[in-house]
Design a protein around this nucleic acid. Structure first.
Length: 461
RNA sequence: GCCGGGGUCGCCUAGCCUGGUAUGGCGCCGGCCUGCUAAGCCGGUGGGGGUGUCCCCGCGCGGGUUCAAAUCCCGCCCCCGGCGCCA
């Protein structure tokens, strides 16, 4: 039962070096890790030998009947302890350094991942839907489709679609980020009426479709401890994304992935119980500390939103197949919403440390003239399960291995709303609601059914 | 938040007062036996390191006392019960 990274470290470190190089990281830490691991093993052995010696003497103490002999043995044990403690102190230092280094290593990049240091190297895999392209964005659209070798049929429009931020606040009058910034700061929002119904309907839609496919519905804790978070994410993500609760060892989750990964932390799962497919529904809190001034307007990039998240615990031999399944599920949801999208295989330099491979589903945004991320599906293989101690037990011989963990967005509410506002608006600012959402709107007396109308035609405020 | 009880190798459990190599059962894995199944019998069943025979560590977590800690002391986490507070 070994962690894949530790196994490579001992048997074939060059694999790890190549992987780090693909991520654009310094591969020399692998040499350092190999050296530290070797030193750790040597020290551990020495300490173990001294401990053994001490155990032997100490056991003799209880058996010694002669008081003088007893005193002599106790004295000898004392001397051993003194020597042992020196070595142990050294071992502890090395161990801690080794541990930190091992935990800083990112997952091993899968061979199918395109190599590159920016999203320009993301490899489009397939396109779906018929994007509406404003004439002014035509060139950039062709750049993102035909130039990448895909013939995508599209409609050219001569009027410029209104960006989601203006749709929200000005055209529909159903969002208020100005007052939100007074109350909470930038990147917060108030949503009203029809957009709230839409938010809820989107969540219900994703929940309905995916539970029907066998996912188990979960409301997880919205705050988790440090150890759990460190098991799920890397330090960079921690710094940029995570809110801490003052005075407590608790952090607000940035996605349901965090508490769902922790669900079986430190536990063993019998192989015939796998795969375990969970569907988390939760608010998500993100500091967006590394985002700079990107997407400052509107609700594309915000500090809080609702999300339905697919999460799977899997046998190692099934995880790659399951990754395809997760992204296919997300595609089905976005096809239902009639949002034109593409799926990209994310470049090595853009993968987070936990992921061995990641697909993004990007929806065409008519007012921005580009495809933008709505869904992210990752296979973290045994990276998270090693850190969290989630293992599977093979029936045959009761052998233990690390499970593989996968996660994928189903629907993130605010982002999906931006896609709907931009794609389904007409020239008069009326927003058509996708038909698949209807069952989840009909249950409410005041919810819209087919359209969301501009504030001008509603004639209020 | 306070008082009391508790947390032991997947599950249950003995040991804790009175410090001296962690007890038994269930489940699971392997084997034997066997028309089949069941039962029965034997062995195994936490982690790390080394390696055919071994060693170390492990009793919620972290410290302390001691030659020696599941056992004694301190802090923390969690569970159960009672009280308080509150939706």
């Amino acid at each position: 039962m070994t962690w894949s990274i530790l196994r490579y470290l001992r048997e074939n470190p060059s694999v790890l070096k190549e992987s780090l190089a693909k991520r654009g990281m310094d591969a020399s830490i692998i040499d350092k890790a190999v050296e530290l691991d070797g030193l750790w093993r040597k020290l551990k052995r020495e300490v173990d030998e001294l401990r053994h010696k001490h155990n032997v003497v100490t056991r003799l103490v209880s058996k010694a009947s002669d008081p003088g002999e007893k005193r002599r043995l106790i004295e000898e044990a004392r001397l051993i302890v003194r020597r042992r403690e020196e070595l142990e102190a050294r071992l502890r230092r090395v161990e801690e350094e080794r541990r930190r280094l091992l935990l800083s290593l990112p997952n091993i990049v899968h061979p199918s991942v395109p190599v590159g240091d920016s999203d320009e190297y993301n490899e489009p895999l397939r396109y779906w839907g018929r994007p509406r392209v404003y004439r002014g964005f035509l060139e950039s659209f062709l750049e993102q489709t035909v130039k990448r070798g895909f013939q995508v049929s599209y409609d050219v429009v001569d009027w410029k679609p209104i960006g989601h931020a203006d749709m929200l606040e000005k055209v529909l009058g159903l969002g208020d980020t100005l007052r939100a910034s007074k109350v909470a700061g930038s990147r917060f929002y108030y949503l009203f009426d029809d957009l709230v119904w839409l938010d809820m309907a989107l969540i219900m839609y994703a929940v309905d479709v995916l539970t029907a496919k066998g996912f188990r519905l979960v409301i997880p804790p919205y705050m988790v401890r440090y150890d759990i978070l460190m098991g799920v994410i890397d330090m960079d993500t921690f710094r940029d994304a995570i809110y801490k609760v003052e005075g407590e060892n608790l952090y607000l989750i940035a996605t349901a992935e965090h508490p769902l990964a922790g669900l079986y932390a430190g536990e063993e799962i019998m192989e015939d119980e796998l795969p375990i497919k969970l569907l988390g529904i939760s608010p998500c809190f993100r500091r967006e500390a590394g985002a700079g001034n990107r997407d400052l307007k509107g609700i594309f990039r915000v500090h809080q939103f609702h999300k339905v998240e697919q999460f799977v615990y899997s046998k190692p031999e099934e995880s790659w197949e399951l990754l395809e399944e997760l992204i296919a599920n997300a595609e089905q949801l976005f096809q239902g919403l009639e949002l034109p999208y593409r799926v990209v295989n994310v470049a090595s330099g853009e993968l987070g440390a936990p992921a061995a491979k990641k697909y993004d589903l990007e929806v065409w945004m008519p007012a921005q003239g580009r495809y933008r991320e709505m869904v992210s599906a990752s296979n973290t293989t045994d990276w998270q399960s090693y850190r969290l101690g989630v293992r599977l037990v093979r029936r045959k011989g009761m052998q233990r291995e690390y499970v593989h963990m996968l996660n994928s967005t189903a629907i993130a509410s605010t982002r999906t709303i931006t896609a709907i506002l931009e794609n389904h608006q007409d020239e008069d600012g009326v927003v058509k609601i996708p038909k698949v959402l209807r069952p989840y709107l009909e249950v409410f007396k005041k919810a819209p059914r087919d359209y969301i109308y501009p504030v001008s035609s509603r004639g209020k405020r």
